[in-house]
Design a protein around this nucleic acid. Structure first.
Length: 594
RNA sequence: GGGGUCGUAGUUCAGUUGGUUAGAAUGCCGGCCUGUCACGCCGGAGGUCGCCGGUUCGAGCCCGGUCGGCCCCGCCA
């Protein structure tokens, strides 16, 4: 093995071209592939930026050529040599540097490598846990590496936009206190204070509000947040927010800032010119038309409410649901009248995973409505459905009949599934949508009390204030979510900034005065000292990067992600700790010593 | 907490109705090769069929359990 010594790179592996002919250059990188012809040897040398072919020719430079025979995948090299045009028609159009090659005059082997456990080229499929176990090798592959580069570009764009608009980047504590509401906390035991615990922040929510009360006026932070809940393809227990908060503003100001930020990020990363302002839709409308509060507006197939049109109909299943206070809604799957029995069974099973007890369907034919249930409807009802659904021959109607919540969830999932099956989800289209006018609270049936839909610091809409004590479920909040292609990528609100309103809100949530004082006393006190009107928003950076990179998994945009069981195959975290560590933390282990 | 799916060579996979010595591609090792770019040709090594138990004359294959990857429901203010 050789020493790097004083040798330094003159270029990276993606820059050289015909402009550099006959220059003497120094490149460093990894052996991607070698092609040893016995005589001449070609090596594809790879670094973060790209690939350059280097050549060892025994007739030109016998010494490095002799040395090059031993080179293997992922060995680390420094090479000095002359930039030469490739002879004749030997150019490689697949490489940016494909017009040239480096005739090596000096080879330094900086390190050897074991044979990699999986191929590092771009098109090999490798299982997730091997990739994560050797993540440092996975990062050398183009896919993940390029995603991290784009992530860097995105955060830099966000930073510069926010700085230009007067925001201060301020850090907030990672060791903070657990507060009620919200997700399960990650807890950190305190050694110095026996029996007390810190919690890792689910978000910097209260601190950023306190920064507004501290007169910082405009704050942002690109910050880790922690929620100890089960994982999904778009959810990790630690994730990153672009978090911001502004003083003396209303919804429109914050939305405009958010739109400007997103616009700058899209331009910087993908060269896509967005045209804000983005459309807005009320929560009620989103639920009614799409069945959920983060509609994918790239395609139609909207939900149609048939409850009143079918009240008293001859189909007992529907009628019983309607009599019982439930609803009947339907989707017209345009042109899906050709679906087979198996297709319909698959969709029914899929609906079942979201709580549907069944799924009625009708195939609209030229002269009849083909379905096991058509016979239960009279002509008026069929005509009413035809009009409401704009049903034409060749269409397929799918029904949901159940409680409001189940119908909306089932049909919204069916709609998305149909969108995927019919290839209506075009990943080159970016449909942004603001969802506004969320309910302030919902009723938690299990705990028999109201719970904040957004969080307990979200301000109610002024015009709904009088309903706060009489019909709290009808009160709308000043919260807003930013939705992109059916994925919630940001959310925020105007906050409560008076002690009275905050106390009223905590009261509504069934948090007693003593508890409020203990858990939120510091916030209530701060509100007493001239808190400015303020509000903000936080973007889920990971989800945003999934959209920008077209990744199917959040793991593909995070350098060192966790598995679905929230472990890290690379470090084998979480791991065990010594008994002494626990006792120092005043914790009593209940496991047996190994 | 629940449902689905996968687990066979370093890697990606095939493996029939339960039947002799578990295969392919690629990678790896050795040899040959002076213009390749997924170089080519010849040869070779490489397996606890995730693990435990059961059924059977006989299990990669069937059954039960368990561990792990992934997807989903619940959960995620």
């Amino acid at each position: 093995m050789d020493s790097l010594g004083a040798l330094r790179r003159t270029h990276n592996c993606n820059t050289l071209g015909l402009d550099n002919l006959n220059q003497e250059v120094v490149l460093m990188g990894w052996v991607l592939r070698r092609r040893d012809h016995g005589g001449v040897i070609f090596i594809d040398l790879r670094d973060r930026w790209g690939i350059t072919q280097i050549v060892f020719n025994p007739e030109v430079n016998p010494e490095p050529h002799a040395k090059a025979h031993q080179l293997r995948s992922e060995w680390v090299l420094a090479v000095k040599g002359k930039v030469e045009a490739r002879p004749g028609d030997m150019e490689n159009p697949k490489l940016k540097t494909g017009a040239i090659e480096i005739m090596v005059s000096e080879l330094r082997i900086l390190n050897t490598s074991k044979t990699p456990p999986f191929p590092l080229d771009e098109d090999s499929e490798v299982s997730d846990n091997i990739r994560l176990q050797y993540r440092y090798l996975d990062l050398r592959r183009p896919e993940i590496g390029a995603n991290l580069v784009m992530r860097h570009t995105a955060t830099q764009a966000a930073r510069s936009f926010l700085c230009e608009n007067g925001f201060l980047e301020i850090e907030t504590p990672m060791l903070t206190r657990s507060t009620p509401e919200g997700a399960r906390d990650y807890l950190v035991p305190s050694r110095v204070n026996a029996g007390k615990f810190f919690a890792l922040p689910q978000s910097p929510q209260l601190f950023k509000q306190l920064l507004m009360m501290g007169g910082m006026d405009r704050y942002f932070q690109i910050v880790k947040c922690f929620r100890d809940e089960d994982l999904r393809a778009d959810r990790q227990p630690e994730f990153t927010q672009i978090d911001l908060e502004l003083s003396f503003v209303g919804e429109d100001d914050i939305m405009a800032i958010a739109e400007g930020l997103v616009k700058q990020v899209f331009a910087a990363t993908r060269g896509i010119a967005l045209n804000p302002p983005f459309p807005r839709m009320s929560y009620q409308e989103a639920i009614s038309r799409y069945g959920n509060d983060k509609p994918d507006t790239r395609f139609g197939l909207e939900l149609v409410d048939l409850t009143e049109k079918l009240r008293g109909c001859g189909f007992k299943v529907f009628n019983a649901v309607i009599e019982g206070g439930g609803i009947v809604k339907a989707i017209n799957a345009k042109g899906c009248g050709t679906f087979s029995r198996k297709d319909l069974d698959d969709l029914t099973n899929y609906a079942g995973t979201f709580g549907a007890k069944g799924m009625a369907w009708i195939k609209v034919k030229e002269d009849e409505w083909q379905s096991p249930i058509t016979k239960f409807f009279n002509e008026n009802e069929i005509e009413a459905m035809r009009q409401a659904l704009n049903a034409e021959p060749g269409d397929l109607i799918l029904f949901g009949a159940d409680s409001v919540a189940v119908v909306n969830q089932v049909l919204s999932e069916l709609r998305l599934e149909l969108g995927r099956r019919l290839n209506l989800t075009d990943n080159s289209v970016f449909n942004f949508l603001w969802v506004t006018d969320f309910p302030l609270v919902e009723f938690d049936a299990e705990r028999k009390r109201y719970a904040a839909v957004h969080h307990p610091f979200t301000a109610p809409l002024d015009e709904d204030l009088e309903l706060l004590e009489t019909e709290p479920l009808k009160v709308r909040s000043r919260a807003y979510d930013l939705v992109l292609n059916g994925s919630e990528i940001g959310g925020g609100s105007i906050r409560i900034h008076t002690t009275e309103m905050q106390a009223k809100m905590l009261n509504l949530l069934g948090i007693a005065d003593e508890e409020a004082e203990e858990k939120f006393g510091f916030l209530l006190r701060a509100l007493e000292f001239g808190a400015p009107p303020h509000g903000g928003i936080a973007f889920g950076l990971d989800r945003l990067m999934m959209m920008l990179t077209g990744s199917g998994s959040i793991r593909d945009v995070i350098a060192f992600p966790k598995t679905q069981k929230a472990t890290c195959p690379l470090t084998d975290a979480p791991g065990s700790v010594a008994r002494k560590q626990l006792t120092e933390l005043h914790l009593r282990p209940d496991w047996k010593e190994a």
